[in-house]
């Protein structure tokens, strides 16, 4: 039965500058410093104390979204359930909330010399490298959609988008980018 069950991904963007990323395991972890300290060794990355910063390592990432809220990303979707179980085990009775949101959202990557300019067509933040450095991440607005924006390299941004907004967000980015990438 399982073989017949295929994943239908929300977006199929694939251009030089805009790519749909493969599925990932995603969790939201809420909790205080003690919970984070317990989770970090299992997760394998640090949890940034500085606001709006991502920590990466070993195919995983922990993104600061709020003072007690982190977005955990792992490229390894096969061990999603095992990951959750080991995190829960490490967290034990420490007050926390771990919620699987692997399918709630999907990821886009926007790259190239125009990446920041294209995003500025709809995102109100200052994306100058000095103001929004590599490793910075935040929830923000992309026109009428909410996204998580994470700069992974000078000219590469990772976007986390709720799946039902896929048509809107990819359509919007393509429209904005038209003047830079002639079709």
């Amino acid at each position: 039965m399982a073989d017949a069950t295929t994943r239908s991904l929300p977006s199929a963007a694939a251009t030089q500058w805009l790519m749909s990323m493969p599925p990932a395991a995603r969790f939201v972890l809420h909790g205080d410093a003690a919970a984070r300290a317990a989770a970090a060794p299992v997760w394998g990355t640090a949890f940034a104390e500085q606001a709006c910063r991502a920590e990466i390592g070993n195919g995983r990432a922990a993104l600061w979204l709020g003072p007690d809220e982190y977005l955990l990303l792992s490229a390894d979707i096969e061990s999603e359930a095992a990951l959750a179980a080991s995190l829960e085990q490490a967290l034990g009775d420490l007050p926390h909330a771990l919620v699987n949101i692997s399918h709630r959202q999907f990821a886009l990557e926007i790259r190239g010399p125009h990446a920041a300019t294209i995003l500025s067509g709809a995102c109100p933040l200052d994306l100058d490298l000095a103001e929004f450095p590599i490793g910075m991440c935040t929830r923000t607005a992309l026109a009428k959609a909410d996204i998580v924006l994470w700069r992974t390299a000078a000219e590469v941004f990772h976007l986390e988008v709720w799946r039902s907004f896929s048509g809107y967000v990819t359509g919007l980015l393509n429209e904005i980018a038209l003047e830079f990438h002639r079709v």
């Binding site: 239908s8 067509g121 709809a122 026109a143 009428k144 959609a145 799946r163 039902s164 907004f165 048509g167 809107y168 967000v169 359509g171 919007l172 429209e175 904005i176």
Partner: peptide
């Protein structure tokens, strides 16, 4: 700006939309 036609507002669709 871009807020017109299909992009006026997000059109949210469910997994069974197709």
């Amino acid at each position: 700006g871009t807020s017109r036609g299909d992009l006026f507002d997000p059109v949210r669709t469910t997994p069974t939309h197709a």
